[in-house]
């Protein structure tokens, strides 16, 4: 199988380029894209990419495979390969450090803005802050995000305004804390989101939903945030 790889080593290359590599896939086997990359790296140890858990939990190996973002470790080659060719590029819209490794600084900056931690100014109870099963249920579909950045880097609004638009991943997390019955900073959280960029650059095209490797729905969470802002403003 032909694998086309985005290569860029800023210390040696003037510009990024695509490198074609022929990789032998064992007969009758469907590898994950990460396995193919590992085969490439055996031949060419200079090939750089991030990986850690290799089972879709850590979120390190988000990349663009034949035009669609996803986690290389849980994406079967047969799902993405076209005409027996696999094209691997780094996540779009973020600065490339080397090959498939991108600088996630802007992504984390947006994550930090939404205060991704519980805020509660009441004295802590002796054992723990209790939640009813119904209250806990509201966090389903929100807490599972692994911050792989597949969604935010598939979002044109994040490409145009990565410094001002929080992006689908950050907004999913923003709602995860807005929806938490134990959090007491809802007013402050909403105050921080009520400008023309942070939330409202979402145009609802749902690229985030179509690429999320965990099957989450940031567009829905953004809709909930908009409703909270609307309730607060009317």
């Amino acid at each position: 199988m032909l694998v086309s790889l985005y290569r860029y080593n800023p210390e040696a290359d003037n510009a990024p380029y695509m490198q074609d590599v022929e990789v032998e896939i064992p007969e009758g086997k469907d590898l994950m894209v990460l396995d193919v990359l590992n085969l490439v790296k055996e031949k060419d140890p200079s090939m750089s990419y991030r990986r850690s858990c290799r089972e879709g939990v850590c979120g390190s190996d988000g990349m663009n495979m034949n035009g669609k973002n996803g986690l290389a470790c849980i994406t079967p080659v047969s799902d993405v390969v076209k005409n027996n060719k696999l094209v691997l590029r780094p996540l779009p819209g973020l600065p490339v450090i080397r090959d498939l490794v991108v600088d996630m600084g802007l992504f984390y900056k947006q994550y930090e803005k939404v205060m991704p931690y519980l805020v509660n100014d009441k004295p802590a109870p002796a054992i723990e802050r209790l939640q009813s099963p119904e209250e806990r249920e509201k966090l389903d579909g929100l807490y599972e995000c692994i911050l792989c950045a597949c969604c935010s880097t598939a979002c044109p609004s994040f490409w145009w305004n990565p410094d001002k638009f929080i992006g689908p991943s950050g907004l999913l997390q923003a709602y995860r804390f807005l929806a938490d019955s134990r959090d007491t900073a809802q007013a402050e959280r909403l105050e921080n989101l009520d400008d023309p960029f942070s939330v409202f650059r979402c145009r609802g095209i749902m690229n985030c939903v179509s690429v999320c490797p965990k099957g989450l729905n940031p567009t829905k969470a953004i809709g909930h945030i908009r409703n909270l802002l609307l309730q607060r403003a009317t």
Binding site: K164, N192, D195, P196, F197, F200
Partner: peptide, 19 residues
């Protein structure tokens, strides 16, 4: 946080959205 919207018609994001 975010950019001021002095050249926009609404004062904030939700107002623009409602308009």
């Amino acid at each position: 946080m975010g950019m001021n919207s002095v050249t926009n018609i609404g004062r904030n994001g939700i107002q623009d959205w409602i308009i």
